[in-house]
Simulated scan of single mutants.
Amino acid sequence: MVRLARWIGRAANYSVETSAFSKPVLGIETSCDETGVALLRWQPEAPGAGLLAHVLYSQITLHADYGGVVPELASRDHVRKLLPLVREALAQAGLTPAQLGGVAYTAGPGLVGALLVGAATGRALAWALGVPAIGVHHMEGHLLAPLLEDDPPTPPFVALLVSGGHSLLVEVADIGRYRILGDTLDDAAGEAFDKTAKLMGLPYPGGPALARLAEQGRPGVFRFARPMTDRPGLDFSFSGLKTQVLLAWQSSAQDEQTRADIARAFEEAIVDTLVIKCRRALQATGATRLVIAGGVGANRRLRAALADAGAREGFRTHFPRPAFCTDNGAMIALAGAMRLAHGQHQGEAVAVFPRWDLETLPPP
């Protein structure tokens, strides 16, 4: 814990003592189809211990009839749910708005309408309360989510950020010092899960449904390629794998056991590909710590495979709890509180960035 506090203090050329931000920070997440709100009091030596409240509303039911997220509906639902969730989080923590020290909100990347709801609300609250506000990079929030756990990682480390919209391998030298090692060339891993599930007729949201079905599949009945592992590099491509699954499904009996067998083979191909790329990234950077975050980070087969690889090859893996793998307000409150504690904040303009390069973030 002391080492973590020294790292965070050193990252911004502030001492931990002089940069203390003792009042709670409100975190708001509205980048896609989940409305997340959290309250966190910044504690450099143990960030997770400062989490005071965490509430989350998912729009799964709203979008289920459409088989995917409808941006306009997502934005309108954030408008309806955000302030009630803020009130709920304050009540859960036993706080009043006047006791807040700052507001952090997701400024990007994400759906522009959804982002604007959180940004406008966050900026308005900050202005009304006379406290600083900061827009947080969604992927930095995911990257820092493991710091909420009891054994937080310290840099340098490699981070695998895998979700419905992103598949990134990032070298983390320090907070705000990020280098993209690998990116997706087409479908992200989570997107491939969802699209594959949909083509096999699984209910929305498809990714978790496919993972559950894969547990009933028989090993070795089908085998699919491990995309882009037969050549150098750390980029990802999963669209071809999705096509392989489609062809296998169309030429099969399409019964329940076949569906489960294909789901298992697909999941194994995704997991093996991610593990191979992670091992390459660790070897290329010399890092001995690996952080896994994002919605796909909750996948049990992926967690087990990376833990086994780490035990064999001598690297440590750090996962946030499953509730903090998916989009949530706690990770935004943490990332925002960390930067606010070191003097960063933004003006009164409401600005969001649907596309936002992680490498362009400044250090705190």
Rank of each mutant, 00 (worst) to 15 (best):
L125P: 05
G130E: 08
P132G: 03
D33C: 12
E313A: 14
F319C: 05
V79L: 15
A333N: 08
V291I: 07
L306H: 12
R312L: 08
G9E: 11
L147V: 12
A305S: 15
D272E: 15
S237A: 14
P24K: 02
A120R: 15
A89S: 10
A188T: 06
R6P: 07
G108W: 10
V103Q: 06
L168D: 01
D255E: 13
S31M: 03
P227E: 06
L361F: 00
P97Q: 12
F324Q: 12
E17Y: 01
A173S: 14
D150V: 13
M200H: 12
R321E: 14
V291M: 03
V70T: 14
V131I: 14
L361I: 08
R231S: 13
P47D: 09
A119V: 09
A330E: 07
H78W: 07
A189D: 09
F238H: 09
R10Q: 14
L147N: 11
G164P: 02
F319Y: 15
Y178R: 02
L185T: 05
T326H: 00
L234W: 00
L147W: 15
A330T: 06
R76W: 08
T317R: 07
F224S: 04
L52F: 07
Q257D: 12
I262N: 05
I332K: 01
I332M: 11
M228N: 08
I60Q: 12
F224H: 02
G94T: 12
A253Q: 13
I276E: 14
P156R: 03
R280L: 14
Q254T: 09
L361Q: 00
L202T: 00
G294P: 03
K277L: 03
L82K: 07
L306G: 08
R223M: 06
P156K: 02
H137W: 04
T360Y: 04
L144K: 04
P71S: 10
R41S: 15
L181F: 05
L340S: 00
L274C: 01
L40H: 10
G329A: 00
A197V: 04
G329F: 00
R300A: 15
S239M: 03
P364A: 04
L334A: 04
L290H: 02
E17L: 09
Q244I: 01
L241S: 04
V16Q: 08
S15R: 13
Q257R: 13
I180T: 12
T196L: 00
A269Q: 01
E348V: 12
N299A: 11
N299I: 09
M228P: 09
V221M: 11
D65T: 12
R218H: 13
C278K: 08
Q43P: 01
S15W: 01
R301L: 14
L290G: 01
D186A: 06
L125M: 15
A265F: 01
